[in-house]
């Protein structure tokens, strides 16, 4: 049975996790790197059976190579194609799926083989459930499962793929770093503080974390109304601001419904709290159970070093 997999790679995100998931299906796993040669070289050390490199030209976005990647995929005819949920990866995956006439499934957490079929388990109902989907034919999946650290003692040689100049239909003009003062409502990162913080002087910790993360600061209603540590325009929750950052780090926030309704659309929610029963642990993506006074200083240095 053909269980050949292609993993579309535009950066290192989830590369190990996708490799691991595809390997478990039993077939040959190919990394199709669309990007720099250097990226392909580092991917080649992870343990793929084959690494192809579609080297992109300066100033041309990876998406411009979508049709060429799709043609190559069609020639190889993999049973499974994976990409991470980065916007570039998803677009390339769509192109390959169309060319292969493959089934497309998003938010896939797990993959398995059942007889002649692949069973993809995708996250549904707002992450509360997994749905098992039986796919008899070719499958293109956006992989959202656990990442795994991968490495191999025997790097494979990178195969440079012939790439044609994609022309000028798409070109990069500039990259703009996030403005520090994007404002709470549109900020990509937000640090939220609750009354788990013991005193106003400790807000220095939150200031430092926000600075290290290039984040805006927000707070719960009691922090504003009862402690008066922040003005009301920093309050997130019902009757106050609703925010949708990429990353929300909740420090010392218990997770009252009033507050949680304001961060419902945040992409990734991290909670730091020392109460294992804190409600927020039911409503976050990552929960660090521990003393915020010990955890936050480490978070600050972690973000300073590689955030």
């Amino acid at each position: 049975m053909n269980m050949k997999s292609w993993i579309i790679i535009i950066d290192e995100r989830r590369a190990g996790g996708m490799l691991d998931a595809a390997k478990k299906l039993g077939g040959q796993v190919t990394a199709a790197v669309v990007g720099s040669r250097a990226l392909a070289d580092s991917i080649a050390k992870l343990g793929f059976d084959q690494v192809l490199c579609f080297e992109t030209a300066e100033g041309i976005p990876a998406e411009a190579y979508a049709l060429q990647v799709a043609e190559a995929a069609k020639a190889a005819a993999p049973r499974l194609v994976l990409a991470s949920d980065s916007s570039v990866g998803r677009m390339l995956l769509g192109s390959v799926a169309a060319k292969l006439n493959a089934t497309m499934i998003g938010a896939v957490r797990l993959l398995a083989v059942d007889g002649e079929s692949i069973v993809a388990s995708r996250s549904t109902a707002d992450g509360k459930l997994l749905e098992d989907i039986e796919v008899p034919g070719a499958l293109a999946a956006i992989f959202d499962g656990e990442d795994v650290e991968a490495s191999s003692t025997k790097p494979v040689p990178v195969e440079l793929m012939p790439v044609e100049d994609p022309g000028t239909t798409m070109r990069m003009v500039e990259t703009i770093e996030a403005e520090e003062a994007a404002g709470l409502l549109t900020a990509a990162r937000v640090v939220g503080v609750g009354v788990g913080l013991a005193s106003k002087d400790d807000l220095k910790l939150i200031d430092d974390l926000a600075a290290a993360m290039h984040a805006e600061k927000a707070c719960t209603l009691p922090v504003c109304d009862d402690m008066r540590w922040f003005p009301s325009n920093r309050v997130v929750g019902s009757s106050h601001s609703q925010i949708a950052p990429e990353l929300y780090i909740a420090v010392g926030i218990s997770g009252q419904p009033q507050h949680m309704s304001g961060i419902r659309d945040a992409k990734v929610v991290v909670a730091v709290n020392n109460d294992p029963e804190a409600r927020i642990f039911k409503n976050c993506d990552y929960g660090i159970l521990g003393d915020l006074y010990k955890v936050v200083p480490e978070l600050i240095s972690a973000f300073k070093n590689n955030g």
Partner: peptide
């Protein structure tokens, strides 16, 4: 929710940063 034990803050933050990197944030 993936729970991370904060008893060892350094290890906890390392685990978190790796996960956030995977999530692309």
């Amino acid at each position: 929710a993936r729970m991370i034990d904060g008893k060892d803050p350094v290890a906890a933050c390392k685990e978190l940063m790796a996960a956030l990197r995977s999530d692309g944030v």
